[in-house]
Nucleic acid binder design. Structure first.
Length: 221
DNA sequence: ATGAAGATCAACT
DNA sequence: GTTGATCTTCATT
């Protein structure tokens, strides 16, 4: 059944705990991702996501329902952060979905910055472009976005629902119709056999803050 | 104890 | 288009 938006609130458990992670991934587009560390809010609209699903998805860390210390978090009830280190450098932020026992997650790959942009530039170690145009590299790509929002592996497992948590997602009432969403294969999962071809990457066609595969917005300074 | 691989990015040529 | 950085996790010895 379709999710009913709630305005001006953290997305509730009922949003995250649905069993169709592909649908949840699409529904996350247009939502507002918020972190508030050290009383510095940084926020942005989610523009690009990928779905991962155990047990049948070979690209998922929990493929075959493999439980390890790292993947354990994905088996918990939806509405938590799963953050892990990639290539020894990048902290990738995922949203855990589905009820307890189903290891599903959505990787957030891009946001359009809204608030706390100064803080994001500082964390990223880059400067604003000419005329105040925000360079897409500020928050495009999962490693970049996590750095801009101050997300780190030590926050893995943190709740997105609990009123005191420092990471959450809001519905601002942005309507994303199906025909403004594009889909394609996930990035960097060529090793995953036939699963590599699944079109479980979704992005807002009209956003600049999308990592690749969208030729009309590539590499414009 | 050891080694291989990885849901990436930036700086090159 | 190619490559180096950098380190945790997991499987194997």
């Amino acid at each position: 059944m379709p999710y009913q938006p709630e305005y001006s609130h953290r997305l509730p458990a009922s949003f995250y705990c649905r069993t169709d992670v592909v649908q949840v991934a699409k529904d996350l587009l247009g939502k507002k991702l918020v972190t508030k560390f050290d009383n510095k809010p940084t926020t942005g609209i989610i523009t690009e996501v990928e779905a991962y699903r155990a047990p049948d998805d070979r690209a998922c860390h929990a493929f075959g329902n493999r439980r390890t210390k790292r993947t354990e978090i994905m088996f918990q009830e939806g509405g938590r952060a799963y953050i892990y280190l990639c290539y020894g450098i990048h902290h990738l932020f995922n949203v855990v979905t589905a009820p307890e026992g189903m290891a599903h997650a959505v990787l957030v790959r891009g946001i359009e910055p809204l608030e706390g942009i100064e803080t994001m530039f500082q964390r990223r170690g880059i400067k604003p472009g000419a005329k105040g145009i925000i360079p897409t590299k500020l928050t495009t790509g999962p490693g970049a976005l996590a750095q801009a929002l101050g997300l780190h592996t030590h926050q893995t497992g943190h709740s997105l629902i609990h009123p005191d948590s420092e990471i959450w997602i809001e519905d601002r009432g942005v309507i994303v119709s199906e025909n403004t969403i594009d889909a394609g294969p996930r990035i960097g999962v060529d090793y995953a056999g036939e699963c590599a071809a699944w079109e479980w990457r979704f992005w807002l066609r009209d956003s600049r803050f999308v990592s690749k595969g969208n030729s009309s917005y590539d590499s414009k300074s």
